[in-house]
Design a binder for these strands. Structure first.
Lengths: 212, 212
DNA sequence: GAATAATTTAACTAAATAGTTAAACTTTTT
DNA sequence: AAAAAGTTTAACTATTTAGTTAAATTATTC
């Protein structure tokens, strides 16, 4: 193996320092939160030292801001893709919302709790205000629900309550996972299975609750 | 006003130092979490200095443990009262569970997010393990649901999923309140009104979803 | 291949925060 | 009222953690 081959291979396998930092920052911040995370932990996780962290990202706040914004966006990314669609029926939208949010949570188990908690502890803070404005979920879904009620397709329900219900059923299990697991003696595998079932179960549950 | 009258009056109005500390510790810990809370903030909030805090409660950990255990218990206290009852029907239990958990969350707005988040960040830790064991929700409810399915009173559903649904619908809105508010432009009063409505709405929603 | 720029480190400083001490003050007991 | 116990404080120390510096190393450009 020549020298250049070694380098090419290394580049394919190993991430750049910046990417390594972002990976470990994601991991540490989402697990421990802003106040619980330690720059030293992030550096250790990335296999570098603290000075290099500050070389790439001036401060903890700056690094956090990047991770938090990325996380907030990711949390609702799949939703915004189709929520305004004119082609999908309300029931189809509900099915997709549930499936997408559960899939997102399964792929990123700490993400929902992280975003929710930082908003909680810092709701007035500038970061949350900025990010909050960007991700206001469309009023078109609310209108879609209201239309369905008006047309007698579903029973009367406050559209906002229905939206809250869909989000609650999809995401709460992941947010409260540790309590549920202790509470009900559920292993990791059992939990994953339950959540996989929920992709269909929750949509059915919601549709049964609202159809005439 | 005599000297003794002054003292009697003061005792009625003012809390003991220990109670003042617990009050402010509750406030600061539930808002900021273990890692975000500062002993100085707790002292300031109680109108005392840090040394006195350490006089009453040896360390931050000790004080936190007390507050956290109290909070975890409070979070499910009302539930455990009636959940095993033989007199109540399943639907009555569902109505009470929803109403109690929403009422509890309205009275203690930061409590659910606090408990959930600390479990998340510390699920392996000794505190969570100890507290977790104490609050395992009864299997009798699960059995009650299973019986209702077997007797054909409700449509087939995994009892664990139904339990998760009830908890999700009752508590998620409070956990995700800051995001919901920014997302849907909802004031404090509007939010309180929505949650008041949910006490009935959620029970209806669940019952409609499961009844034949 | 020398010069320049980018990357990385060890060792440091600065700031924040938990926890301690010794003395003063207050209340209760004898 | 003297002694003892309980309460409170100001000023302190110890520890943790974010952030800096200057020098060494590596990669890139001319």
């Amino acid at each position: 193996m020549t020298h250049t081959e070694e380098i090419t291979l290394a580049k394919e396998i190993e991430l750049s320092t910046e990417e390594k930092i972002l990976h470990s920052a994601r991991k540490v911040f989402t697990k421990k939160g802003l106040s619980g995370a330690r720059m030293q932990d992030i550096a250790d996780e990335a296999g570098i030292n603290k000075a290099l962290l500050h070389y790439y990202f001036r401060s903890k706040e700056k690094l956090f801001e990047k991770i938090f914004e990325e996380a907030s966006t990711k949390m609702f990314a799949k939703l915004t893709e189709f929520i305004d669609s004119k082609e999908l029926s309300l029931f189809e939208k509900i099915e997709k919302m549930v499936e997408n949010q559960i899939a997102m949570s399964m792929e990123n188990p700490f993400l929902p709790a992280f975003v929710i908690n930082e908003f909680h502890q810092n709701a007035e803070g500038s970061i949350c205000q900025t990010i909050g404005r960007k991700m206001s979920v469309s009023h078109k879904l609310i209108e879609h629900i209201q239309e369905a009620v008006n047309q007698g397709l579903i029973r009367p329900i406050n559209p906002i309550q229905l939206f809250i219900n869909i989000m609650s059923l999809s995401m709460f299990p992941f947010v409260s996972k540790p309590i549920l697991q202790i509470n009900m003696n559920v292993t990791e595998e059992q939990f994953a299975l339950l959540m996989e079932q929920r992709k269909k179960d929750v949509a059915d549950f919601v549709i049964r609750a609202i159809k005439l």
